[in-house]
Simulated scan of single mutants.
Amino acid sequence: MSGQLVAVLAVITVALVFDYTNGFHDAANAIATSVSTRALTPRVGLTMAALGNFIGAHLGGHVAKTVGSGIIDPPTGLNGLGIVFSGVVGAIAWNLITWYFGLPSSSSHSLFGGLVGASLCAVWFGVNAEVLWSGIVEKVVVPMVASPLVGFVLGALLMIAIMWAFRNGPPRSQGFRRAQTVSAAAMAVGHGMQDAAKTMGIIVLALYTGGYHASKTDIPEWVFLACSTVLALGTYSGGWRIIRTLGRKVIDLDPAQGFAAETVAAGVLFTTSQMGLPISTTHSITSAIMGVGATKRLSAVRWQVAGNILIAWVLTFPAAAMIAILTYTVAHFAF
């Protein structure tokens, strides 16, 4: 077996490990609100989320193409594979750190930060790699800023509409618990469309860089199947620490509020996926929860917890980049 093939297999392996950590790290995105309002039991919620992730993964080709060709341009061969390997390791490490502390950070931005950090480090070592800054600004930075704002505003507006519709009496909790089954399922599909696609893009980039695939944007069917299966398994394992943070620590949600937050977040994910914009599912659902909660009263949102989450969001890109830099500093001797 050639050294280059071994390197390609190593990158695919760490990409699938990232996919798995993405699943249990972001399981909260789909089911935290439904579990906290008792619309779903935890195990039923995770089963539904895993199935939704599996289905959604087969619909996320636009995002995969952006990740595979719009973030970095590594050289072909071992040097390029070393960059991708180190970037993914940086993302995995930050996922595990934030999971340990129960912070719902963005797996997507940890991946992008890792890839950028590894690429910049490679350039310092004399490797002909390039960071596609225009693509990062257009398809990462702008959506990163805009999606939480959109989620917050739309969450508040939808909740205000629900409150107005039921102004003569409180909404029936049982009816909204049933509705949450649908909104949570939509969130799970949207998460699959976004997050499985990012791993697909990494695997295709590794195959192209290693000389085993002719295109950065054409995704083989086995890549769809592998990424959707691993993401679903990771989701089913459940990231309970983050589920508790989103479901209980940010705000105490009732079924109507949970339905509003999930519906808005799912809508944002579906729209951006079709546009090929790799946004954070974590940012979308967290901001929607805050927007919904703010309609009750501003003090209903536990802003100290929200502040800790915001700090994790800000740190994600540079922290993953730094871990990737350290990884590449060591790994480039092997690649």
Rank of each mutant, 00 (worst) to 15 (best):
I97S: 02
L16P: 06
M48P: 12
A214I: 03
N168S: 14
F270W: 10
V250Y: 03
E130F: 05
L115S: 10
I83G: 09
G175K: 14
P278D: 07
K139A: 06
C227R: 10
Q304L: 08
K65R: 14
A206V: 08
M144K: 03
R177T: 08
I279C: 00
F224Y: 15
L158T: 15
G201L: 12
P170L: 04
F24C: 07
A30V: 01
T235Q: 07
Y208P: 14
A331G: 06
D195V: 04
V153W: 05
G3D: 13
T217W: 04
G90L: 05
A288T: 02
T281W: 02
G238E: 05
A179S: 10
Q274L: 11
V116D: 01
S36Q: 01
V250N: 04
T209N: 09
M159Q: 14
F85R: 04
I243Y: 05
L225P: 04
A32Y: 01
W94H: 11
V189S: 00
M159N: 03
L207Q: 06
L9Q: 09
Q4R: 14
I289V: 15
V67C: 13
C227D: 12
L5T: 06
L326H: 08
A10F: 04
M275T: 13
F101Q: 02
K139H: 09
Q304G: 14
A197S: 15
A184V: 13
L158S: 10
S299L: 08
F112S: 09
G201D: 11
